[in-house]
């Protein structure tokens, strides 16, 4: 569980996040949504410690992350998996080696065999078979994303942060990836936080949806509740597309 209390962050005295408080529950897919410039990215970066909040606290299972020393933070970071926008695989490493990378960095006490077994397990879990020795340039965008997920869960993370996980993917593959993230979240009891603006993802896997508007937490609820939020700004965001408007009318 990650609890955010009264988070405040400003750049050049301009508040980007203002008094944001919420709880991301374990085993849930928590989605941060909002328009461009709403503060989603800064919020996500504050959560993983890439930005220091000016005020407020971020509690990883009751441990205030903002007050930890860099050594203590690194212990928490070991429990964090990250899925970057655009997969961000290392081109010179093959699929298997990409997955082993965080194990090499964080698990000095694991044997080579154990690391290999773990990598194979993660790749199997994301349905990558017989492609362990292929290089990123040799696999499709959807496969790259799945390898990136395997890499993100290699260290058995307790928390998983995904930044625009299905950007650049076709709708069908995007749904596969969304569902994969949700399955993994449930199966391994991970606290997953996803930064997205894709309404398909919201509707598909949004156990808990946080809507940011001008740096403030404007609304939060489930994917079902978001359709009937009654909040003007949320509805503008949700029904921005013609498809969603037609669905609403029907």
């Amino acid at each position: 569980m990650i609890e955010i209390r009264n988070l405040y962050k400003a750049f050049n005295n301009l508040p980007v996040l203002n008094n944001v408080s919420t709880i991301f529950q374990k085993g849930n897919t928590n989605l941060i949504i909002g328009q461009s410039g709403s503060g989603k990215t800064v919020f996500m970066k504050c959560l993983v410690g890439l930005h220091e909040p000016d005020e407020g606290g971020i509690y990883y299972d009751n441990l205030n992350f903002t007050k930890l020393s860099s050594r203590e933070r690194s212990q928490v970071r070991k429990k964090i998996g990250m899925l970057f926008q655009g997969s961000a695989l290392f081109d010179s490493l093959n699929v298997e080696e990409n997955v082993i990378f965080p194990l090499e960095m964080f698990n000095k006490d694991m044997t080579k065999k154990e690391k290999l077994e773990r990598a194979h397990f993660c790749l199997d879990r994301v349905n990558i078979h017989n492609a362990n020795h292929l290089y990123p340039a040799e696999i499709s965008g959807g496969m790259k994303k799945r390898v990136a997920i395997a890499r993100a869960i290699a260290n058995k993370p307790e928390y998983l942060f995904c930044d625009e996980p299905n950007s650049g993917l076709d709708p069908a593959t995007a749904i596969v990836i969304d569902n994969l993230i949700r399955e993994i979240t449930k199966e391994f009891e991970i606290t997953t936080v996803i930064n997205t603006h894709d309404m398909n993802s919201v509707m598909e896997i949004g156990d808990h949806v946080v809507f940011l508007y001008k740096g403030e937490l404007w609304w939060e609820g489930t994917s079902e509740q978001i359709l009937t939020s009654g909040n003007k700004e949320v509805e503008e965001f949700v029904y921005a597309s013609e498809l969603m408007r037609k669905l609403k009318t029907n």
């Binding site: 993983v48 970057f84 961000a88 990378f101 960095m105 260290n155």
Partner: peptide, 16 residues
């Protein structure tokens, strides 16, 4: 710069 950031985010130490 980006690849450095990803490596760091995945646990790469400064020395690495």
């Amino acid at each position: 710069t980006t690849i450095i950031g990803i490596q760091k985010a995945l646990g790469a130490k400064n020395f690495f």
